[in-house]
């Protein structure tokens, strides 16, 4: 071990000869004056942002939205008109999208599910068709009001926050009053439990009702995020 470490340290030592650690006190002496640089940035940003904005404004707004509670805040999501999320095991029956063959496609965004891209305005109909064939769906819900904005899904479940002294049995008893059961303990120390629901707007609507009931500290729909690696 020591020989290896000595080797690494030696290589580092040899490689670091031309540099110094610590902050350089003369750092701000060179370069354009901050005021001029700021002015230049401002002018440039204004003209460039205008051209980008024109393209952004050309995107048609989505007409339908829903709201839900997230802690103390109320958030809005916009319903997609051309994307449907199929949750759970992927159907082998790809003919579901035959209704819209010219625009239909799938992606692999989901493990254990998939995204259907359909003709604009057909999302509800395709979702109904997928559901009729026994598969679970969620609408795609955009975080801003255009079809190009990132979207999330509703895989099912309501995350409730209960007083930390509540036992699982207490939570189960409370949930049964809503005709529901506890799917799993999300985090007991945080008082977080997942209450079972099917996927889709059912979970959001139930979360809102539970939150507004005042019986518990908070309720929010379980959300499927489409995070990216960076």
């Amino acid at each position: 071990m020591n020989t290896f470490l000595a080797s690494v340290a030696l290589v580092l030592l040899l490689g670091c000869g031309a540099s110094s650690d610590g902050q350089d006190a003369s750092a701000l002496e060179a370069g354009p004056s901050p005021a001029k640089a700021s002015l230049a940035r401002q002018v440039m940003s204004s003209s460039m942002a205008r051209s980008g904005k024109a393209a952004a404004l050309a995107l048609e707004p989505l007409p339908r939205s829903v709201e839900y509670y997230d802690g103390e805040l109320r958030r809005t999501l916009w319903l997609s008109e051309d994307t449907v999320l199929e949750m759970g095991p992927v159907a082998a029956d790809a003919a579901i999208v035959e209704e819209a063959p010219e625009s239909a496609g799938t992606s692999n965004d989901l493990r254990g599910g998939r995204t259907w891209k359909v003709r604009r305005g057909r999302a509800d109909a395709v979702a109904a068709e997928v559901a009729r064939r026994g598969h679970q769906t969620s609408p795609a819900l955009h975080i801003a009001g255009t079809a190009e904005a990132p979207f999330v899904g509703l895989p099912g479940g309501v995350i409730v926050t209960v007083p930390r002294e509540w036992s699982r049995e207490t939570v189960a008893s409370w949930a049964s009053g809503w005709g529901r059961s506890v799917e799993k303990v999300v985090h007991a120390q945080l008082g977080l439990y997942l209450i079972e629901t099917g996927p889709g707007l059912e979970s959001l609507e139930l979360a809102n009702r539970m939150h507004e009931s005042g019986e518990i500290l908070a309720a929010t729909p379980n959300i499927l995020h489409f995070a990216s690696t960076r």
Binding site: G71, I143, P150, Q189, L190, L192, S228, T229
Partner: peptide, 25 residues
């Protein structure tokens, strides 16, 4: 954590209050 909401949109992308509670814990 080398991940996060979709980059490059310029749209605010919130984390959930429950995620925040987990980080606080």
């Amino acid at each position: 954590n080398s991940w996060g909401p979709t980059d490059g949109t310029g749209i605010p992308a919130p984390a959930t209050a429950n995620w925040q509670a987990a980080i606080d814990l």
